[in-house]
Design a protein around this nucleic acid. Structure first.
Lengths: 254, 254
DNA sequence: TAGTGGTCTAGACCACATC
DNA sequence: ATGTGGTCTAGACCACTAA
């Protein structure tokens, strides 16, 4: 018997639509990802080899490889030379994204609300000028918001934006998140540098968040860059640790 | 004039060695990365087009694309259709890696030291069994360490490992980090799920770390998986926020 | 020894941005 | 209209793993 084991992808009814504007490799990777997420391809399963899969779908091997590689990059598959491609065991959720607190809360069904405390233009401080990479004598947008879930304060968000980058409408800011407004304005977010720490609440901070003076707070500072490398936002956030923690998936860099 | 601008990669003396076992695309990407890090290719620079670069190096276009793509994945380059490939502006340091505290400290020149408090085998608690995915009646390694820098306590590390995974020698644990021992034992780390939060120190915790009872502590919980998806470590760590914070670079997932 | 993924080639056509 | 990256093909040889 040449092949006692069955290629599990045979039973997947994979197919690609050459008329679609969606790239072929992407169509394939989506179908595979969906099969993995639905549990049709169970952890540990060895996929059939690339050549055969390519032949069955009428694709070239590089195209199939591109599809598989994208899932390897996402951490869903593992390739081993001489062995094959295997579905990774276990609870791989989502790798860490450059995410918006607002979007995260909304996705978790937490019904976030925002109260804008400050929305003005001010002269930059030295710290903010350094973080944003703007001249020391320029002006920046200053934004201060309280974020609520279930009517309870959860975080205090203080942000600075370079001048002229964006029109910041208080109404819009209370209806959605800052990142979404930036994306809507045609800004392509690219990367961010974050620092997460902790410290005791001052009297003002405690009052704002409904904590006691001296209570532990989770802090996050972030500078966000767009795809031209320009700093588009500097933020200093404080969170109530009883209501928020940072949770994420890391992949090993190869 | 057909080309008033000069392709900056021309002056880079790029070359590949076909006799080397190092893949051609990797040789190229390393040379480009080094040029970017040394500042020879400055931020904003537009690279010449892929076809020409391939011709000049005697490589095929897919090979050159593979080299460039790996740098795009690292966040060093940005491609724009119809425009070209550009060196990203700005202080892109290192993306978040699945990193070892010990290695991080050593790389930062902090001369870390470790004191092993507990190194035994115990019956699992329900929480640990769930995190590691082992049976409720099995045994696990339990590890408790204090991490010092400059002679001052910085973190308390409590870890659990599946039975039989690794020989844990107390001497080795005080000389290096847990991840390095796991890698040396042939374990390929693949991913981890982390939670970062904050809370007040209990009396015991405060005593261990040289803080006051009730002082804010930074906390991290992590489950690490190898490339077969098996959980290989579960850890609960607490840090003195005055001496440690989490700092990292995020890239937007495309 | 047989089968796998890893790498590489030399073309091709298309979509998009800019001029 | 031109030039860029995005996608795709149909092969090829090699390195590694396992039986």
């Amino acid at each position: 018997m040449p092949k006692p084991e069955v290629d599990p992808t045979v039973q997947l009814e994979l197919s690609v639509d050459r008329g679609s504007p969606v790239p072929l490799y992407f169509q394939l990777s989506q179908q595979l990802e969906s099969a993995i997420e639905r549990g049709v391809l169970t952890p540990g399963t060895l996929l059939g080899n690339e050549i055969e899969l390519a032949a069955r779908l009428g694709l070239s091997r590089p195209t199939v490889r591109q599809a598989i590689q994208s899932l390897v990059d996402k951490g869903l598959l593992v390739r081993r030379r001489g062995v094959g491609t295997q579905v990774v065991h276990s609870q791989v959720k989502r790798p860490l994204e450059l995410s918006s607190l607002y979007d995260d809360l909304e996705a978790a069904g937490q019904r976030p609300a925002t109260k804008v405390l400050v929305n003005t233009v001010v002269a930059v401080s030295a710290e903010v000028a350094a973080a944003l990479g703007v001249a020391e004598d320029s002006e920046v947008h200053r934004l201060e918001r309280l974020r609520f879930t279930h009517g309870e304060p959860m975080a205090h968000l203080c942000n600075y934006l370079p001048p002229g980058l964006l029109d910041l409408d208080t109404g819009q800011l209370e209806a959605t998140g800052l990142y979404r407004l930036m994306r809507a304005a045609g800004i392509t977010l690219h990367s961010a540098r974050q620092t997460i720490g902790a410290r005791s609440a001052t009297a003002t901070e405690a009052e704002r968040l409904g904590e006691q003076t001296g209570a532990p707070l989770l802090t996050m500072q972030r500078v966000t860059f767009d795809d031209t490398g320009r700093a588009v936002e500097f933020g200093t956030h404080t969170y109530r640790p009883s209501r928020y923690s940072f949770e994420f998936q890391l992949l090993v860099r190869s």
